[in-house]
Design a binder for these strands. Structure first.
Length: 440
RNA sequence: GGCCCGAUGGCGGAGUGGUGACGCAGAGGACUGCAAAUCCUCGCACGGGGGUUCGAUUCCCCCUCGGGCCUCCA
């Protein structure tokens, strides 16, 4: 077996993946702020780290992985949405948390081991701030608690930001109560009537970066193996998270490997969406006739760090690829995964190469087992080709009528029946064992 | 403006200092009443300009274009 190698943003190179404890591999991926329906791009990390989870379980054992993905359920955008709708922020949060789970499930994502919510860890967050203040890394000012960036000589190691350049390019006015322009909020005051919790610094709510540090500490430990998220989160979110945790934990690093997925390039879709006044969400894509597994394959068609051009054509192509794979896999039970596919995934999750090798596998059981590492081909071939079609009985009847016509050599009638079915999205195939049908 | 990443055939996308995977689409053939599926064959692409080198798509520099970040966007 080859070594699993992952590109670590901290080292800026691929490194052999060696967990601190092979019996308990810990992975934390930044999850959604639940203020609205997430679009497909939001699910790239979800699918990518789901594949990584599958690879890790294959390598270290089915129960060896602890995979946490947070839900940010307190945030100004949630409050704004609640305000608009005249409902409680918790109502907005729980609605979109459910929607997120539903969309992720449609893409074949295994629910993470843990899905902690920010609002359920306020106590831990307050305790973390107190530790930071006691250690001289944070201070209180005007009802806020702030992290003092100059107190941390290692600040910036992850994103390698040049402090001067950062300040020069700052687009946002510096709040007057900050001791240093780079200081960031750990806790901020809540006005009466809006969501908030009592704290040593008055009634308020946590800053964005704090929850991840607190929940990682509470559920996974001081140092985790893998920390993941979108490339946009590298700075400031992960940098700040890292600084908070390291400073609160005597300099112990927060994560051993930092992974960031690239963005979907929404060029064409964005244009399409713009004219429709919305963005491409999973339910919209499903309603347009694309299946979750098709969307999943499309999301895996580029290596996760690369940008991926997201287009309608990509979905059409992904569907055709699945047709072929399901046909090749048939009803074979899962066997052993292919070494070539494993090697490709071991090389920093090279999913396009894995897909290429998957296409070359001869043995059906090997196809299924290998596809399972990618979270594909989870269903039966019949389910893929015929599932969801309405009125299978009528289709069967039409097939019988067509066979009868063919026996009479009335090919005009036979072709008319076939064309009629095709108009309803049903394709016929005359094989050696008789005529079968499938959805277009 | 600063920092960072990307640019490969019609499309998606691997990979590499020395004859450029794979998939989808397309073309031709076999098969079929005709199709579909399957099998065989084919298309000969590394953004532009310099440089290093015996040789660059691969390394270096510049340019162009696209994307990300620059305090709460996956």
């Amino acid at each position: 077996m080859s070594e699993l190698r992952l590109y670590d943003a901290m080292a800026r190179e691929k490194r052999d993946f060696v967990p601190a404890d092979p019996g308990r591999v810990t992975m934390y991926v930044c999850g959604p702020t639940v203020y609205g329906r997430a679009h497909v791009g939001n699910f790239r990390p979800e699918v990518v780290f789901d594949v990584l989870g599958r690879v890790l379980r294959h390598r270290f054992g089915a129960n060896a992985l602890v995979h946490a993905r947070n839900i940010t359920d307190v945030d100004d955008k949630i409050m704004a949405a609640a305000e608009r709708e005249g409902v409680a922020p918790s109502a907005v949060a729980s609605r979109y948390e459910a929607a997120y789970a539903e969309d992720a499930a449609a893409l074949g994502v295994v629910p993470p081991t843990l899905a902690p919510r920010a609002t359920e860890h306020i106590g831990q967050m307050i305790a973390l701030i107190e530790r930071l203040i006691a250690a001289g890394h944070a201070y209180e000012a005007a009802g806020h608690a702030l992290f003092h960036v100059p107190s941390d000589p290692d600040y910036g190691v992850l994103s390698r930001r040049d402090r001067e350049a950062m300040l020069a390019g700052a687009r946002v006015e510096v709040a007057p109560y900050k001791r240093d322009p780079a200081d960031f909020v750990l806790w901020k005051p809540s006005a009466p009537g809006v969501i908030g919790w009592e704290s040593p610094w008055g009634r308020g709510r946590p800053g964005w970066h704090l929850e991840c540090s607190a929940m990682i500490g509470a559920h996974l430990g001081e140092t985790i193996d893998i920390h993941g998220g979108g490339i946009d989160l590298q700075f400031p979110h992960h940098e700040n998270e890292l600084a908070q945790s390291r400073c609160a934990h005597r300099g112990v690093p927060l994560a051993r490997y930092w992974l960031h997925n690239g963005f979907l390039n929404m060029g064409e879709m964005a244009k399409m969406s713009k004219s429709l006044g919305n963005v491409a969400t999973v339910p919209e894509l499903l309603a347009a006739g694309h299946r979750g597994e098709t969307i999943r394959l499309a999301l895996l068609s580029a290596q996760y760090r690369q940008p991926l051009a997201w287009t309608e054509a990509l979905l059409v192509q992904s569907k055709a690829t699945l047709d072929r794979l399901y046909r090749a896999a048939g009803d074979a039970p899962s066997a052993e995964p292919d070494a070539g596919v494993l090697d490709a995934l071991d090389d920093d999750l090279n999913t396009p190469l894995a897909l290429a090798r998957l296409a070359a596998i001869e043995d059906a059981g090997g196809i299924r087992a290998s596809a399972a590492l990618l979270g594909l081909l989870g269903g039966s071939a019949d389910g893929w080709f015929q599932g969801g079609a309405e009125d299978a009985g009528a289709i069967e009847a039409a097939i019988v009528a067509r066979l009868d016509a063919r026996k009479r050599r009335d090919f005009a009638e036979a072709d008319r029946i076939r064309a009629d079915l095709a108009e309803h999205g049903i394709l016929l195939e005359d094989g050696a064992g008789g005529t079968t049908w499938r959805r277009a």
